[in-house]
Amino acid sequence: MIAIAQRSFGVLALVALVIAVATFTALLTRRVPSWLPDAALPTATAIAAVATGGSLLLSEVADYTPCTLCWYQRIAMYPLVVILGVAAARGDREVWRMAVPLSAIGSVIAIWHIAIERNPALGGACDPAAPCSIIWVQEFGFLTLPTMALIGFVAIAGLTLAARDR
């Protein structure tokens, strides 16, 4: 059950990665398709909801203990479900002003977490309760939990920026 969930989250992270790359390419080349601003906020909400649901499933059902950096990323991701959900329902295209800073903070923490996973010496010794260097999930050879979180944050930032571009 957990193995299936992990693989499914890996696939969804790959989808989010494609969305993130495509969205930022569209933004940077100033070729945002006409349908994207309308689709952006519901998609961003879905990404935040899947990330939140996934992290809760892995900690509460699979018993993977969240480390300190996991908690900081959660603090950045969880409110995005409500913020983006309300913005999607109301058609608030200015939500990027809240979503982008939260995503940026989450991304920086996720990058540091990935660095510790790749080089455990950066994280120092292992706290017996919840070391940040431990790799609980690694799908397709590179998708660890903070990597998935980073993809989610980047995709959300890109989508909320695309939403204002009408």
């Binding site: 957990i2 693989r7 890996g10 696939v11 349908w35 519901p42």
Partner: peptide
């Protein structure tokens, strides 16, 4: 558009779970 988006989201979700079931092996 909303219907299309919801349908697309559902397809992606089903596809992800399907791939998970088929490729994750034994639990």
């Amino acid at each position: 558009q909303r219907l299309l988006l919801a349908a697309g989201g559902a397809v992606v979700l089903l596809l992800a779970v399907g791939i998970g079931v088929l490729s994750a092996g034994e639990s």
